[in-house]
Write a protein that binds this DNA or RNA. Structure first.
Lengths: 145, 145
DNA sequence: ACAAAGTCTATTGAATAAGTAGTCTTTATT
DNA sequence: AATAAAGACTACTTATTCAATAGACTTTGT
């Protein structure tokens, strides 16, 4: 499961992506609009800003805006900032590799191989889906579940 | 990330899958061999047994063995027993659906649609990979990372 | 000068995961 | 029948992580 932090991060990016024509958006407004606890959102935006995805301006008339084109912000990268590894086992992670404690021999581990496949399948989606894509899908009927 | 519980469950199933020609395996042996805390493993095996995947026998000479063919035990089903939902957001879950707290309108939610895609990609692997497949991959060179 | 923003770090509280303990039940063996 | 070797079941404890909160500081526009 995604942490709330990550979910909030995506929601914030989507909201800011829809706000590009307007002046920067204040944390308080964003928090209200997206139903996110204000101080928690504050930290999340900070992280995204420090990672280069957001631009912020202090003082009166300040606020947050995207620092990249929404089409260039991929969910995989956001998840990694807020949740860390995307793989389901540390030894299958591309960016946060760690040996599993109880692993006898990684080279022959069938579990690892399987979860590398899972990771690749997941990334196939997440590293190709941008904030712009998420926004674009909001008003289409492409999924009828 | 997979919980340790799930990882231990898979390891246990794999070990038991390799043990099918032999008499049932005792918890203690399995725990030692796979480096899993004994009492924790006990609970996990119980869950798998109650879900119909394992057969157990009490008393001297007792122990655990698979109750199905290793080729018919799919990882997706195991994950659901030990970790619950496979989807990354509750509203995208096939078997454990739950509405997201902060969701305005699920029908148009781009995040949901995206994570349904992720779920499908993940299941594409997990619901086709059996314990037998995991065992089979242990001694192949099909992945050179 | 002051108010309206964001910045940064620390702390608290709650939930969940991980592990432990102990008693009960079944079964094989002697 | 007694005993020992297993698993069954429930309750509890501890550790970790997540979520949220607090508060003092900095920048900037008017």
């Amino acid at each position: 499961m995604l942490s709330k932090k990550t979910k909030y991060a995506i929601k914030a990016l989507v909201a800011l992506g829809k706000n590009v024509e307007n002046p920067p958006m204040q944390i308080v407004r964003l928090a209200e609009q997206e139903m996110i606890p204000r101080k928690f959102l504050e930290q999340i935006l900070l992280d995204l800003r420090n990672a280069g995805y957001l631009y912020s301006k202090k003082g009166a008339g300040g606020g947050y805006s995207l620092n990249k084109n929404a089409a260039d912000i991929y969910l995989a990268d956001i998840l990694r900032i807020t949740d860390g590894p995307i793989a389901m086992v540390p030894c299958a992670s591309l960016k946060f590799y760690r040996k599993c404690d109880e692993c006898h021999d990684e080279k022959t581990c069938g579990i690892r191989k399987t979860f590398i496949d899972v990771r690749d399948a997941t990334l196939q989606v997440l590293s190709r889906t941008s904030v712009a894509d998420v926004i674009a899908r909001e008003n289409t009927d492409d999924l009828l579940v």
